[in-house]
Nucleic acid binder design. Structure first.
Length: 762
RNA sequence: GGACGAUUAGCUCAGCUGGUUAGAGCACUACAUUCACAUUGUAGAGGUCGUUGGUUCAAAUCCAUCAUCGUCCACCA
């Protein structure tokens, strides 16, 4: 007769997880040993590299719940003979962390520049380390059975080494190159961004109609006659860029402008002459049908410029301020300010027809929502076309699968349309690109921009004394300098995704690592939908490149957690739900059970407290059913019952049904149908095991004497089946099942940890 | 502008390759119960499966169309 608390107390969860981590069995090597010792078959390892959360803040509910999918897979596999590795880590998250920490500094009245690069890096590192500790605790709280002896941070020296190797190899093969082209500059983060790192947002804006008068008197006359004004009218959302215009383009089929193609107009204010050119891609319907071309500050215009050999005139710098060969009065102005000033002057000159207020799509920085400034600059690029092709092949052959299926098409489309990837960022927080310039970066870029010219030409044309050969060196350490040659180090860092794209093999020690041999390729990947292109797409490409194998063959995308009202959770809206709150109120198991059923791939899951509560009732039911059985077992009977459940049991109908049940649930898990799995364990345990079997046994032994054969027989079977139920329920609800297991252990009715037990054989 | 997905009970969703009275959880109603269960048990109400057509002996399930919502992609000045 055992005295147990009347209800399951989730406060004990911390102690339970301590047992797991202290046992070391989350380590696949130890688990393999354990299996061997228990005389079990040791099957193929099961491996998931966990998505590393950003080390710049707390985990939100989405992170925490996401891990319950990794964990249900991991625990099930561990309990079916697979030494299991759930490999945890944390991500340095370049831009985001730099922004967050810089903000943090400014709140203390300090700035990044004051600290200097080295100190800033140091401080940010400390900041991340404390966040990492928090994050780790939260992961443990949901019951994540990860191997923390292998935990990594993306900036760990060992990982950086592997990332550098990859870069160096890519460089040698010519996949990596420096190029001067139009890029997305975030004037606030002060760095270049890849196309994928920007988003489109509808904002209010203006549409200004400006007249560019013709240079020749006769053209002006003709224009007055045909167009009503003495010039050609262009419409633009960004008047300030006109200072960098180098042409006006019209459609060759456009009757209105046919007569003016090839003629010159005078760019107002800038007082420069530019030509009217014709290009078929010009839309006659938009605006006035005549478009100003600013190759330096619009990617479309850049392409037109390239096609027609137009000059590139830079008028905006990386801070989003006006600069370059423009009238002095505009220099240093913000673009918006300049736009207003220009409009005023144009109006005075009678060259501004009108300004319309419009709503239009604006490109913004994904991190800080600041409008992107397209500018020309030198950046490092990775040619991913061949890698994307390989990835695409794997999808077509069915070797790479995405759940839900619809997203597989999206991924396929992404690979098809892929553009060179800009991998350099002008940040301090991250891995410095391991490049050294002999004679400096400027020399290299000059030679690169002026094809065919030599160092001597550089000396002549710029009047500067070169301090090197203009060559590059790839490596972590500064190369030896000979004959006074100066090696200047690259100051840019890698895009964060360049390193996290290598996560599945870098975390295993790289292609030569011991763990790599044992655990690569990994078994599957699970993460939220929103980083499919950023992360999985890159992991697939980088994995194929570095290891010639897919890093995983299945990608399972979790549903998105929403606020209770169905809107996106965000701290600024104040509608986010703190994981801690839920843990304290309902315990981790209840949260996990809710998530399995609601967060299916491709669906949204608004947090509903009543539903979590409903699952808490189930958790409690498991506890109480177990408690009831234990209460019915008398101390004097334990020895005999224990002996029976250890030995071979007679096959009964209940036994068979349980066996079938375990099999069915296993199939659900293997097919990633966690919702069906959790529904099934609930249905079976509650409405069959409890409502029918326990009730039957209760009735059968009611009048039996303690120690009688009938009692021993019934109770042994019931206990045996309880244990099998606990096992199959364990992956879904690890805490309560392990708690019960430990209570059984105390009585000698079970041994060790439920986590490392093996499922009822099929 | 394009692609993809969704539309099933009050809410969140299951319903795989078409086949008897369409399911779950939560919420709801009635009765029972303090017998292990912050309850639990039993019973119940609630859906013409977004629209309109089509294929079929048979459709929530396949096809087409429209509508609404969502996500992603896209340089439209």
């Amino acid at each position: 007769m055992q005295e147990l608390p009347k209800a399951y107390n989730s406060d004990t969860e911390k102690e339970i997880s301590k047992l797991w981590y202290e046992s070391g069995l989350t380590n696949p090597d130890k688990m393999a040993e354990h299996l061997k010792e228990s005389g079990e078959e040791v099957k193929e390892p099961f491996v998931i590299t966990l998505p590393p959360p950003n080390a710049n803040g707390n985990l939100h509910l989405g992170h925490v719940c996401g891990y319950s999918f990794h964990d249900v897979m991991g625990r099930y596999m561990r309990m079916t003979g697979h030494p299991t590795l759930l490999l945890p880590g944390k991500d340095h998250a370049g831009i985001q962390t730099e922004t967050v920490f810089a903000k943090h500094l400014s709140e203390q009245g300090k700035s990044k520049q004051e600290l200097g690069r080295e100190k800033f890096y140091e401080e940010t590192y400390k900041f991340c380390m404390s966040n990492i500790e928090n994050a780790r605790e939260q992961e443990k709280r949901i019951g994540l059975s990860a191997d923390y002896s292998r935990e990594l941070f993306t900036l760990d020296p060992g990982l950086t080494e592997i990332v550098y190797e990859t870069f160096s190899q890519m460089f040698d093969e010519g996949l990596v190159y420096r190029d001067k082209r139009i890029i997305n500059q975030c004037p606030s983060c002060m760095t270049a961004l890849a196309d994928i790192d920007v988003e489109h947002e509808e904002r209010r804006g203006i549409f200004a109609y400006i007249i560019y008068p013709f240079v020749e008197e006769e053209d002006r006359k003709l224009a007055k006659e045909l167009l009503g004004v003495e010039g050609i009218t262009v419409a633009t959302t960004r008047p300030e860029t006109m200072l960098g215009d180098t042409a006006v383009v019209v459609n060759p089929k456009d009757k209105r402008y046919k007569a003016f193609v090839g003629k010159k107009v005078l760019l107002p204010i800038a007082e420069r002459e530019i030509s009217v050119i014709a290009d078929e891609d010009t839309d006659m319907e938009m605006g006035t049908g005549a478009v100003k071309v600013t190759p330096a500050h619009s990617s479309v215009d850049f392409e037109i410029g390239k096609k027609h050999g137009l000059e590139v005139v830079n008028v905006i710098n990386e801070e989003g301020k006006m600069e370059g060969d423009i009238p002095e009065r505009f220099k240093g102005m913000e673009t918006v300010e300049c736009s207003k000033a220009l409009s005023k002057e144009l109006e005075k000159q009678g060259l501004l027809i009108k300004i319309e207020n419009i709503r239009h799509e604006v490109t913004v920085c994904e991190r800080c929502r600041t409008p992107i400034e397209p500018i020309i600059s030198n950046q490092w690029y990775l040619d991913v076309s061949s890698l994307a092709k390989k990835a695409q092949k794997n999808i077509k052959k069915g070797k790479l699968r995405v759940f839900p299926k619809g997203q597989q098409k999206a991924l396929s489309h992404f690979f098809e349309e892929i553009q060179p990837w800009c991998i350099s960022r002008q940040l301090w927080w991250g891995q410095r690109i391991p490049i050294w310039y002999s004679g400096g970066k400027k020399l290299y870029d000059w030679l690169h921009e002026n094809e065919g010219k030599s160092v001597e030409d550089y000396k002549e044309e710029t009047g500067k004394e070169p301090t090197g050969t203009g060559k590059l060196y790839v490596g972590a350490e500064r190369p030896e300098s000979k004959n006074g040659e100066v090696w200047e180090e690259e100051t840019d860092v890698f895009d964060t995704w360049f390193s996290s794209g290598q996560w599945p093999f870098s975390t295993l020690g790289g292609p030569d690592g011991e763990d790599f041999k044992k655990f690569y390729p990994t078994s599957m990947m699970i993460h939220a939908r929103d980083i499919l292109f950023w992360w999985s797409a890159r992991m697939v490409m980088m994995g194929l490149y570095r290891t010639e194998k897919l890093p995983f063959s299945d990608i399972f995308l979790t549903g998105m957690i929403l606020a209770p009202d169905g809107s996106k959770m965000s701290k600024s809206k104040g509608n986010s739900v703190e994981p801690k709150e839920i843990f304290e109120k309902y315990g981790a198991d209840s949260l996990r059970l809710w998530y399995y059923s609601d967060a299916l791939p491709g669906s949204n899951a608004p947090v509903r407290e009543e539903k979590i509560k409903g699952n808490r009732n189930f958790v409690n039911k498991v506890w109480n059913a177990s408690r009831f059985i234990l209460m019915n077992v008398e101390d004097s009977e334990i020895g005999e019952i224990s002996k029976r459940i250890e030995g071979p049991m007679e096959e009964t109908e209940r036994m068979k049904r349980t066996r079938d049940h375990v099999k069915k649930v296993g199939e659900y898990i293997e097919k990633y149908q966690f919702n069906l799995g959790s529904e099934k364990i609930r249905e079976f345990f509650w409405h069959e095991f409890c409502d029918i079997w326990i009730e039957q046994v209760k009735e059968s032994i009611e009048d039996e004497e303690i120690g009688s054969e009938k009692r021993i027989l019934y109770l042994s079977e019931l206990l045996y089946l309880l244990k099998e139920n606990l096992k199959i329920m364990h992956p879904f609800m690890p805490f309560v099942t392990e708690s019960v297991w430990q209570e059984l252990s105390k009585l000698g009715l079970a041994k060790g940890l439920l986590m490392s037990e093996q499922m009822m054989s099929r």
